[in-house]
């Protein structure tokens, strides 16, 4: 295994981040059901549905919300294969892997469903274990799908501004907005640095050497970042910054936004109030 692998994996992580961002932006710019919603309402709708999924004790209800996610994806011009890949790979599959031991009576004692032996070890899958694993996996999958829908159908900077409806302090909203822009600036710095290292470093002699390269990069990024703050502050002043941040409002609500929100709230009230779904 190449000792330069960490350089390659860092470059791949950066490239993957940029690719995901470009794709998300392309989907957010399309015309579709969720793209047409006011970002503030969309955030509230998704958050309400997330709470409904979180509170629900009924697997059929959670699966229905997952079905709704797929319908929303289709109605929002999102390629369904892309959506499935984006929502299944990593977190739900990782959760499925985590949930597997919970199937067995060692972790979930209860009513036996299936028993078998592996390498002389007797294993029993219990009803409680199976249901716990299914609940866990389906809930994570549905929640991840809701979050991905939100991120794919909303321009990222608009989504961050929409946080104001939760009465998030202005310092947070301004920091979020600026942070988002800096991430893209810094990601370019990181990518260029790693490409430069890759083209100059033929062989990383030891773990210590590799770790030194990474730490040097992080420290150098902070040095550059720190220098940048003075330039940014001067730029802010030249644009009229008076120590009190102001954000422009670009939101447009419609009657459909209210209808969607009312439906989401109704679902949550039913789940919470009656605990039947």
């Amino acid at each position: 295994m190449s000792k330069r692998r960490f350089i390659r994996s860092s470059i791949l992580a950066v490239c993957s981040f940029i690719r995901e961002s470009v794709l998300s932006d392309a989907y957010a710019a399309k015309k579709g059901l969720l793209q047409a919603r006011d970002a503030r309402f969309k955030l509230l709708i998704i958050f309400t549905l997330l709470l409904a999924v979180l509170f629900s004790k009924n697997i059929i209800f959670i699966l229905s919300i997952y079905g709704l996610c797929l319908l929303f994806a289709l109605a929002s011009s999102i390629n369904i294969a892309f959506f499935l890949k984006r929502t299944w790979i990593f977190m739900p599959l990782f959760s499925l892997f985590i949930a597997l031991p919970a199937l067995f009576d060692i972790f979930s004692p209860g009513q036996p469903l299936v028993s078998f032996r592996i390498f002389g070890l007797s294993l029993i899958i219990t009803r409680q274990g199976l249901m716990s694993a299914i609940f866990f996996f389906v809930r994570v999958l549905t929640s991840v799908s809701l979050c991905v829908l939100l991120a794919l159908t909303t321009r990222h900077y608009v989504l961050l501004k929409a946080l104001r409806i939760f009465r998030v302090p202005q310092v947070f909203v301004m920091t979020l907005g600026m942070c988002y822009r800096y991430i893209y600036l810094f990601i370019e710095v990181v990518q260029n640095t790693y490409l430069a290292i890759r083209s100059r470093v033929e062989f990383v002699s030891s773990l210590k050497h590799g770790q030194g390269i990474v730490a040097g990069n992080i420290a150098s990024l902070w040095q550059r970042s720190y220098v940048l703050q003075n330039q940014v502050y001067s730029a802010m002043l030249s644009r009229g910054y008076m120590a009190e941040p102001k954000t422009m409002d670009e939101f447009h609500m419609s009657i459909k936004d209210w209808i969607f929100l009312a439906m989401a709230i109704l679902i949550l009230v039913l789940v919470y109030g009656k605990n039947i779904i």
Partner: peptide
């Protein structure tokens, strides 16, 4: 005041 961008820069970092 001069260090207002520092927070955002630190968050991105």
């Amino acid at each position: 005041r001069r260090q207002v961008p520092l927070l955002a820069i630190a968050a991105a970092f």
